[in-house]
Amino acid sequence: MQIFVKTLTGKTITSEVEPSDTIENVKAKIQDKEGIPPDQQRLIFAGKQLEDGRTLSDYNIQKESTLHLVLR
């Protein structure tokens, strides 16, 4: 499924993921596309910071959901 990751600069990254993918996994995909190390990434969805060990389905993230990427 496709999800969108919006950066603070307003850029939107499209990523191909599975509901069973972990947040860590998603951060790795963002690193592949943007070159941002996962340890600098914080992903936010519905006002919550997403934890690395959890999966997209844990957070009820569905296709075409938009996550927000904040850098630390």
Rank of each mutant, 00 (worst) to 15 (best):
I23L: 04
I61Q: 00
D52C: 06
N60D: 09
V26F: 05
K29I: 12
G53T: 10
D32S: 12
S20V: 05
S20H: 12
E18Y: 15
D21Y: 08
L43D: 00
T7E: 03
T9Y: 14
S65L: 03
E64W: 14
V5M: 04
A28R: 15
R42N: 11
V70S: 07
A28T: 10
P38H: 12
D21E: 09
K29Q: 11
L69R: 00
T66S: 05
G35T: 03
R54E: 04
Q31L: 11
Q40H: 11
Q62V: 13
D58K: 02
E24M: 13
M1P: 03
V17T: 03
I61H: 01
D21R: 01
T12K: 08
Q49E: 15
Q31D: 05
V5A: 02
T55C: 04
L43R: 00
L50N: 00
L71D: 06
F4A: 04
L67S: 00
L56I: 10
G35R: 06
T12W: 10
D21M: 11
F4L: 06
I36W: 14
D58L: 03
H68F: 14
I36D: 03
L8D: 11
D52P: 06
E51G: 04
S57R: 12
N25G: 09
T55M: 10
T9I: 07
V17L: 05
L71M: 10
M1W: 11
E51L: 10
K48M: 13
Q40W: 11
H68Q: 11
Q41E: 02
L56A: 02
T14L: 12
F4S: 05
S20D: 11
Y59W: 01
I44M: 13
I3F: 02
R72P: 10
E24P: 02
K48S: 08
K63A: 15
P19S: 09
T22Q: 03
L69D: 00
M1C: 04
K29H: 07
E16F: 13
G10M: 04
D39H: 12
D21T: 10
I44Y: 15
K6I: 14
P37G: 05
D52K: 04
D58N: 05
Y59V: 01
D39F: 11
L43Y: 03
T7Y: 14
E51P: 02
I30P: 01
T7A: 05
T22S: 07
L67Q: 01
K33P: 04
E64V: 03
I36M: 05
P37L: 07
F45K: 02
E34T: 15
L69G: 00
E34N: 10
D21N: 06
E16Y: 14
E16T: 12
S20P: 03
Q31P: 03
G10F: 04
Y59T: 01
S65A: 12
T66M: 10
R42A: 10
L69H: 01
P19H: 06
G10T: 02
F45I: 03
L67M: 05
T12D: 03
V70P: 00
D52Y: 04
Q49A: 11
E24G: 13
Q49R: 09
N25Q: 14
E34C: 15
T66F: 07
K29P: 00
F4R: 06
I61P: 01
T22A: 04
T66W: 08
A46P: 00
L43Q: 00
Q2H: 11
Q49W: 14
T14Y: 09
K11L: 10
P19W: 07
R54Y: 13
D52E: 09
E16W: 15
A46V: 06
Q31C: 13
T14W: 08
Q62D: 09
Q31T: 09
M1V: 06
T66V: 14
P19F: 07
V17D: 01
E34Q: 07
K48P: 01
N60W: 04
I36A: 04
T14E: 08
K11V: 09
L8C: 15
E16Q: 12
E18W: 13
V70F: 13
I36K: 03
P38L: 14
F45A: 02
R54G: 06
V26M: 05
K6T: 10
K27D: 00
D32E: 14
H68S: 07
I36S: 04
K11G: 07
G53E: 09
G53V: 07
Y59K: 00
K33E: 09
P19N: 05
S57A: 14
K48D: 06
L8I: 12
P19A: 09
L8H: 13
K29T: 07
L71W: 09
V70C: 08
D58Q: 07
R72C: 10
P37T: 06
V70R: 11
K48Q: 13
V26G: 00
G10A: 04
N25V: 13
R72Q: 10
T55P: 05
D32F: 12
S20G: 11
T22Y: 08
T14P: 06
S65T: 08
R42Y: 13
L56M: 05
A46M: 14
I44E: 08
Q40T: 09
T9V: 08
S15P: 09
I61T: 01
E24V: 08
T9A: 12
T9E: 11
T12H: 05
Q62G: 13
S65V: 07
I13C: 04
D58R: 02
I3Y: 00
D21I: 04
E18D: 12
R72Y: 12
P38M: 15
K48R: 11
L71Q: 08
D32I: 13
I30S: 02
S57M: 12
K27I: 08
L69A: 02
R42K: 11
V70L: 13
Q2R: 15
E51M: 11
D58G: 03
R54C: 10
K6Y: 07
S15H: 13
I3G: 01
K27G: 01
E34D: 06
A46L: 12
T7F: 15
L56H: 01
L56N: 02
E51D: 09
S15A: 15
P19G: 07
D39T: 10
D21A: 07
T12G: 03
R72F: 12
I36R: 03
E34Y: 14
Q49G: 06
G35D: 05
A46E: 14
L50F: 02
I44P: 00
I23H: 00
K11E: 08
L43P: 00
L50Y: 01
G35Y: 03
